[in-house]
Computed example of a mutant assay.
Amino acid sequence: MTARTLAAIHPAHRDDIGDLVTRRPVPGPGLEQVDPFLFLNHHGPQTYAPGNKGLPFGPHPHRGFETVTFILDGSLAHHDTGGHASIIETGGVQWMTAGAGLIHAEISPPAFKRDGGPMEILQLWVNLPGRLKMTAPAYTGLQADAIPVVPLPDDAGSVALVSGRFGDVEGPIRSLTGVMLSTVRLHSGAVVTLPAPKGRSVFLYVVAGTVAIGGRSVPHWHLATLRDDGDSVELTASDDAVLLYGHADPIGEPVVAHGPFVMNTRDEIGQAIRDYQAGLFNGTGPLPAV
């Protein structure tokens, strides 16, 4: 395999939401997207006291893309107007296809608000091509024990595979567009090679620790963009590290975003707003209890 070269290193910019510590590497200055990866919020790490108000993401709509939420620590309750509801704990993932339109809420469950505790969550927005933007909404919530963990050679660490293929293992989520997504944990001093098929966009965000690519350090809370000049990514872990790692075929279509809607044209954004106001995102009815 041939290693890709590092194109740039992008810091995650601090953008707290109330008392919720939030960092965002994309979009940011000089980086609108890593097509088809549109947006990443890194919430935490932080510890909530007992009797807290929990996460602030009450009911809100989406259309035209998918949200993938990694619960690195803590717990997260999801419910939406498609009739889906779940509470996912540490190590689990929520994958929601907004498609034609859903209203959902992502909040802390009652036990977390009562007792408090550590919390760290990543939410990634993955674009859909025009032909799939109005696909039927869907949701899958996976606890940690439903996500295969693939050990890396030489005790270098492991890959928790959510979607796509890694070696002989296939992730439990069947992505509509063939997206591979995982969290990677590396031990200090590990030297690893991760697959990055030619022609695919690579998403590599350092959640914790520091890694080196081509001799350059990429510290925690930074995203690395890579040139499409190889079919692998070679990493050296300077210390114990956690990565959000994935790859996907670029869509190559216009992106017009307006708040929670991501479409191809301004007219489609206008239609999304009108449909939402007309109650057409209500799916099967009110948000179910969690």
Rank of each mutant, 00 (worst) to 15 (best):
R4D: 13
R4A: 01
R4M: 04
T5C: 05
L6I: 13
L6H: 03
A7W: 00
A7K: 07
D16F: 01
D19H: 13
V21A: 09
R23I: 00
P25A: 11
P27N: 07
G28E: 06
E32G: 08
E32A: 13
Q33C: 08
P36C: 12
N41Y: 12
H42M: 07
H43L: 13
H43F: 13
P50G: 12
P50M: 15
G51D: 14
K53W: 00
K53H: 10
L55D: 06
P56M: 11
P56S: 11
F57A: 07
H60F: 07
R63S: 11
E66F: 08
T67C: 10
V68I: 12
V68R: 12
D73E: 15
T81A: 05
G82F: 00
S86C: 06
Q94W: 03
M96L: 15
A98Y: 03
A98N: 02
A98V: 01
G101K: 02
I103V: 15
E106L: 04
F112L: 13
K113N: 15
R114K: 09
G117E: 12
M119Q: 11
W125F: 01
N127R: 07
P129M: 08
G130N: 06
L132H: 01
L132G: 02
K133W: 00
T135V: 08
A136L: 07
Y139F: 05
G141L: 10
G141Y: 05
L142N: 09
Q143M: 12
D145C: 11
P148W: 14
V150Q: 05
L152T: 09
P153F: 14
D155E: 15
D155H: 13
G157D: 14
F166E: 09
G167H: 09
V169Y: 05
G171W: 03
G171F: 02
G171H: 02
P172V: 12
R174P: 00
R174C: 04
T177M: 11
G178Y: 10
L181I: 09
S182Y: 08
T183Q: 02
H187K: 15
A190L: 09
V191R: 13
V191F: 08
V192Y: 01
V192A: 05
L194V: 06
P195W: 11
R200N: 15
R200M: 15
R200H: 11
S201F: 05
A212N: 09
I213K: 00
G214H: 01
G214M: 05
G215C: 03
S217H: 14
P219H: 10
H220T: 09
H222V: 04
L223P: 00
L223N: 08
L226I: 12
E234H: 07
L235R: 00
L235M: 13
T236F: 09
D240R: 03
D240V: 04
D240E: 15
V242D: 07
V242L: 10
V242P: 00
L243G: 01
D249W: 06
I251W: 02
I251R: 02
G252D: 05
P254R: 08
V256H: 06
V256L: 06
A257L: 03
H258P: 00
G259Y: 07
M263T: 03
D267W: 13
I269P: 01
Q271M: 10
A272M: 07
I273D: 00
I273K: 03
Q277G: 09
A278F: 00
A278H: 04
G283W: 04
G283R: 03
L287K: 04
P288H: 05
A289P: 03
V290H: 04
